[in-house]
């Protein structure tokens, strides 16, 4: 029986593997710099660039697998998907962020994607170790729905993609002429994926709400903010339709929308608007 007590035995190896992966990436860069300094004398190389990339990818994959096994064992031993508490959702965030980081790295070859996603994934592990928030809560009847798992997974996947989009936007803002076309393409692509998933999560939430609470949309503060967030990304997507060269303002909209996303996810509870709200999400 796996419980949170065993978390460290999976989390630490995963983090070590990811750290190794980032070191390999970084080490390769330094090495090639040194090599080009010595007039490109390839004979000092132990591994080729390509081999470094492959090694790094395998290390990442091993970490993802170790972490995935922990989630699977937790699911089996709790007899419900581990998605109820904050600590449990962080597990998924870590898992998907590292997996998606790997896939995107293999596709676009930007080092920052891999190192960024692995660092953030590790930060979520560290938060889970320091502040577990794992008081096991049984699933109340309203949460026992076939929509629950797809709803949460779409949202978490979407958060991971939209975080990557935000980093890409920030990197682009640092460039004078915004001319890195491969990065702009990545940004467009990742926003489409992230936004598609965001809408799937939101709309499945509406289908579920209808079955569980009798109405598909109640303008509860969380729903209101999800709507605002969607509108932010919608503006970005439509602005881009008529843009040939990306504008700074458009990049700022990506960052602004991500702030809205964070408010939807975490911030809503602290807003005055949520204080007087009828709690749609509790049955009592």
């Amino acid at each position: 029986m796996i419980t949170w007590d065993s978390f460290l035995y999976f989390a630490l190896p995963a983090m070590v593997l990811w750290a190794a992966s980032v070191l390999v990436l970084y080490g390769r860069k330094k090495k090639s710099a040194a090599v080009s300094g010595s007039n490109g004398d390839g004979s000092v190389k132990v591994l080729t660039d390509k081999q470094f990339s492959v090694l790094s990818a395998w290390l990442t994959l091993a970490g993802v697998a170790v972490f995935g096994v922990f989630i699977a064992l937790m699911w089996i031993s709790m007899e419900r998907p581990p998605m109820r508490t904050m600590g449990e959702t962080r597990l998924w965030y870590t898992f998907f962020l590292s997996a998606i980081g790997l896939v995107m790295y293999l596709k676009w070859k930007h080092h920052w994607i891999l190192s960024f996603s692995l660092v953030v994934a590790s930060v979520f592990i560290i938060i889970n170790i320091a502040k577990p928030e794992i008081q096991s809560k049984d699933l109340m009847p309203a949460l026992q729905s076939i929509w629950f798992v797809p709803h949460v997974i779409s949202y978490i996947l979407s958060y991971a993609f939209l975080s990557a989009a935000t980093i890409a936007a920030i990197i682009l803002l640092y460039q004078k002429d915004l001319a890195d076309r491969s990065l702009v393409r990545l940004l467009d692509n990742v926003v489409y994926i992230g936004f598609g998933l965001l809408m799937v999560g939101l709309l499945l939430g509406a289908v579920w709400a209808k079955e569980a609470w009798g109405h598909y949309w109640s303008w509860d503060p969380k729903e209101t903010w999800a709507f605002i967030t969607a509108a932010g990304y919608l503006i970005f997507i439509h602005l881009r339709l008529r843009e040939t060269k990306i504008h700074r303002l458009t990049l700022w909209i990506v960052i602004f929308s991500f702030v809205l996303l964070m408010i939807t996810w975490k911030g809503v509870n602290y807003l005055p608007a949520a204080q007087g709200s009828i709690h749609v999400y509790s049955n009592e």
Partner: peptide, 16 residues
Amino acid sequence: FIAGSVLLIWEGNKKA
């Protein structure tokens, strides 16, 4: 709308 959103996930790739 849900079907359209799922398609959007692939659509982005086409756009790029």
